[in-house]
Simulated scan of single mutants.
Amino acid sequence: MADVAKHAGVSKSTVSQYLNKRYDYMGVKTKARIESAISELGYQPNIVARSLKQKSTQTIGVIVANILHSFSTQVIRAIEDYCHEHDFHLIVCNADDNPEKEKKYIEMLLAKQVDGLIVFPTGGNLDLYKKMKDGDYPLVFMDRVMEEVEVPTVQLNNEKASDLAVTYLAEKGYSSIAMLTTSLKQKPSSRVDRIKGFKQSHKKNKLVLKEEWIKSVDVEEMQDTLREMFNTSSKPDAILASNDLSLIEVLKFVKESGLSMPEDLAVIGIDRVSFADLYSPTLSYIAQPTFEMGRKAASIIINKVKNNDTGDEMVYLYEPDLIPGESC
């Protein structure tokens, strides 16, 4: 920085002002001289030294439970957009719904001194979450509530999402409705709440609920589970896929079984998928406001980092929307 200052004929503090984009009282010619000096000398600011001085790395870590979900990638994009607007960098890690992997990533990001974390919690690291919370470390949960740890959480009204789907099917005349969701091994609140909403909506719409038609399994087991469910005389006439990965497996099963939608089976999913309008027939689904949710999580964490403030709310609940298609 001293070399740049000497080359440009300005003080080190003026170069520092330039590097930190504080141009309010800086002349156009001064800015041009500093820019030219930086270019000629090939100067690159020392990010580590700057972070030590400012006590901030200007970096946020994001740990997603499973990056294969379209919800995850859309939320990450929104977080990245917001962070970019506020001059923060992003490090994204994928936990694969594995608590051990999540723990390693949390420890790695803390060691890299990221300013805060946005976590889609697996639910398997309560002690670590509590330790960060007790240490007043900037932390936000996305998609899943952890009742044991009071951390600002951004999530969908998952019970209502299932209710919208079941009510829509009931209004269309379907009465035998199944549900397929990914594993409940770690009991993620989003999946638990969607099942709860599915059951409550059956009661509200005076439908007969069949517990054996509610399936929570790993993606690899879904085809066998669907074949078993439909290899009986009493079959569902509609199915709710509780997320995009479940929906893909249902569509695969429909195609391989030679079924027609909605004549043989009505299908509706939760989560916005890019191919919904391109698929034939077009798909009905329940959409999450992913970009609004991602921006909210980013705004909370950056406000906490900058101002040590997260606001008064603990849970930021977003409402789902029904997008009707031809699949039911």
Rank of each mutant, 00 (worst) to 15 (best):
E159W: 08
E100M: 07
F253W: 08
K172P: 01
S176D: 00
N308W: 05
F71N: 01
I79Q: 03
E171M: 15
G124A: 11
V192R: 05
A2D: 14
V208I: 12
V140E: 01
I323T: 15
R144H: 14
Q223P: 05
F88P: 03
V64E: 06
P281T: 05
N20R: 15
I270R: 00
V92P: 03
R50E: 12
A178L: 02
L90R: 00
P121I: 14
N125H: 12
L322A: 04
N308A: 00
P320W: 15
D312V: 08
M132I: 15
G27P: 14
I195P: 00
P99C: 04
T310H: 02
P281Q: 06
T57P: 03
L19D: 01
Y23Q: 13
N205S: 09
L139N: 02
Y82L: 09
E102F: 07
V62S: 00
L247D: 00
D264C: 03
E159I: 12
V48S: 02
P289W: 13
L278F: 12
F88G: 00
H86T: 14
F120V: 14
A49N: 05
E220L: 13
A165D: 08
S280G: 08
C93H: 02
P188Y: 10
I195T: 07
K103D: 10
L251C: 11
K133R: 15
R191L: 10
R272Y: 14
A161I: 13
N243H: 11
V154A: 03
M26A: 08
V267I: 11
A241L: 07
L278M: 06
R295S: 09
I286W: 07
S189Y: 06
E100Y: 08
P281R: 09
Y129S: 09
L110F: 05
S16Q: 04
I47L: 09
D237R: 02
K235Q: 06
S216L: 07
A8Y: 02
M222N: 04
A5G: 01
Y18S: 11
D277R: 10
R33N: 07
K206Y: 04
Y82I: 10
A161F: 13
I323C: 13
I79N: 03
Y279Q: 04
L52F: 07
N243T: 11
V250Q: 02
R33W: 03
N303V: 06
Y25K: 13
A241K: 05
R144G: 09
R144N: 14
F275A: 02
E80D: 06
E249H: 13
T181F: 05
D24V: 12
T73F: 04
Q58S: 01
K215M: 04
N20S: 13
S260D: 05
D96H: 01
K306V: 07
D127E: 15
K215V: 06
V119Q: 09
R50G: 02
Q113W: 09
K255F: 12
K103S: 10
V208K: 12
I323R: 15
H86I: 11
V267C: 05
E256A: 07
V219H: 02
